[in-house]
Design a protein around this nucleic acid. Structure first.
Lengths: 179, 179
DNA sequence: GGGCCGATGATATGATATAACACTTGAGCC
DNA sequence: GGCTCAAGTGTTATATCATATCATCGGCCC
């Protein structure tokens, strides 16, 4: 088993259950095309395939998971470095982020209008990642840094806990979990 | 070169230059003894050696850096897993933290009285890590999460920028940098 | 002194990420 | 068309980070 197995099929409730994920993906692809164009980058076939695998769920996935899924889907084999390079481009375009605490990557479904100040919330049960805006976070970090003479230029924040769906499931009797 | 070479000898200004680091270490060791005792853990010889290596600077160091330094200092070889186990114990005791964005570890010189709400500021130039209190951070994260039905139980925050000393050096003419 | 348990040793392997160099391809230019 | 250039990708090898598993050792309790 992968060291950080973030995709827990038994607990997965993301895909198809609680929302129409096709909408998420469509919006994301649109934004990706736009963003790549803006930055003078190209949304190539490989990059698109990688993005589709990452965006297939709201979970954070490892680069080697992406690799396996690409292979499973298309048969042709891709080298790790190719996946990493594609991810790097997707990150530059702002459509994929890295979950630092897990060495994994997730699709960004909510463009950060305010540049900084977003946080990732990771569900310990189902591995889903949601991003929340936290406009005061960056300011507060900058203030805290300034007191120490430290000029903060960028920051990350990751929170861990239990998401809404998993909390609801946890309070249900066990025999209803399949309903 | 290490992928994440966090200790930059050329830029290092931590050791001996800007403060009496022996004081930091003494305080830290005191706190470690106390904390291990409180938690029913043992501050064994190996754990102490690992702590000393990590605490030797204010930089974040990789587990394998610690490994090499232990070997260089004592000659005897230690297995990676032993270092990781020691680090894990030190983290439980609260005297060492993990810098998630760098897969590295640093000594905690400022006990977190308020449980959560600390952030690590990492200097991009010299790799030094300083921790700052940010009492509002955890609360704000919890608030943001609650709006989404997400119950946040723990969090990390890491900021990046340039520390006071490096900023001062950057504004000095080059020929004065050795002064 | 025998059993238990936490810590460490020893060995092997898994998981994550990048280096270095070659090849392809398409855009811009003449 | 043919040229050049740069971005992207392929190929191979390797660096770096982390854990699984089982054996052993040494204190502690009774």
């Amino acid at each position: 088993m992968r060291r950080h197995e973030l995709t827990n099929p038994a607990a997965a409730h993301t895909d198809g259950a609680s929302h129409d994920h096709a909408v998420c993906i469509d919006a994301l692809l649109d934004r990706a095309k736009h963003s790549f164009g803006e930055k003078g980058l190209k949304l190539t076939a490989l990059r698109l395939r990688v993005l589709e695998e990452i965006a297939a769920s709201h979970d954070a996935v490892g680069a080697y998971d992406v690799l396996e899924r690409l292979a499973a889907r298309s048969g042709g084999k891709v080298a790790p470095i190719s996946v990493y390079r594609a991810i790097e481009a997707l990150r530059e375009a702002g459509v994929v982020h890295r979950l630092e605490s897990r060495n994994a990557f997730f699709a960004c479904h909510a463009p950060h209008l305010g540049r900084h100040g977003h946080m990732a919330l990771v569900c310990d049960k189902c591995a889903e990642v949601v991003e929340v805006e936290a406009p005061d976070f960056h300011a507060s970090l900058q203030r805290a840094g300034r007191d120490r003479g430290f000029a903060v230029t960028s920051a990350i924040a990751e929170g861990f806990g239990v998401c809404e769906v998993c909390r609801a499931e946890a309070t249900k009797p066990a025999h209803e979990e399949q309903s």
